[in-house]
Design a protein around this nucleic acid. Structure first.
Length: 174
DNA sequence: ACGATGATGAAC
DNA sequence: TTCATCATCGTA
């Protein structure tokens, strides 16, 4: 099971979001190292995507999404939940994949709680040094079990961007 | 169904 | 400087 390279993330965000389902997120902490399969993701694609924070432009908050792929974008919503995203695509093209679910943690707020990810991780690069990285799928993984749907909790983005099927969910274990 | 709880960006 | 909003979750 190899750690995913920069080239995996330096692609179209929707493709990366799809391909991350079934991969494993590894978190090395002081006492233990845990490893969970990713079961749900969402893509946020560029300045035109009204659901993407980068549609507001290049700000202190969105800066990391304009940077190189494979870095983390972590922010707080509703004053209490950390959302963990992985930046994708070329430098200066803002896009990221939200990790919405892993095995044993349904929901993006629960993912970060379980993995002990906070704002301290914002803009860090995935890798052993950061204590968090992604490993590839098992060989027998069947991508047929991935369902695509519209994204959750982005009604403000308007009908066009709301309707985009940028959410990917693993429907069966494999 | 609703309140918690704080950063963000836009308005003034 | 103030204000509405928010990529959610636990309790009811």
């Amino acid at each position: 099971m190899s750690s995913l390279p920069h080239s995996f993330f330096n692609r179209d965000v929707v493709q990366v979001a799809h391909d991350l389902v079934g991969c494993f997120i590894v978190r090395k902490m002081e006492e233990e190292t845990v490893r969970y399969m990713i079961t749900e993701t969402e893509a946020y694609d560029g300045i035109d995507d009204k659901a993407c924070h980068a549609s507001k432009g290049r700000t202190k908050r969105t800066e990391v999404m304009f940077g190189p792929a494979g870095h983390l974008y972590v922010y707080l919503v509703y004053g209490m939940h950390w959302m963990m995203n992985i930046v994708t695509g070329e430098k200066d093209y803002p896009a990221a994949v939200l990790i919405r679910g892993v095995e044993e943690a349904i929901g993006p707020g629960r993912v970060t709680k379980k993995l002990k990810i906070t704002g301290d991780f914002n803009s860090k690069k995935l890798g052993k040094e950061a204590g968090i990285w992604i490993e590839s799928r098992k060989k027998d993984f069947d991508a047929k079990h991935i369902k695509k749907t519209p994204r959750i909790g982005i009604d403000y983005a308007g009908p066009i961007w709301c309707a985009k099927e940028y959410r990917f969910v693993l429907t069966e274990k494999s």
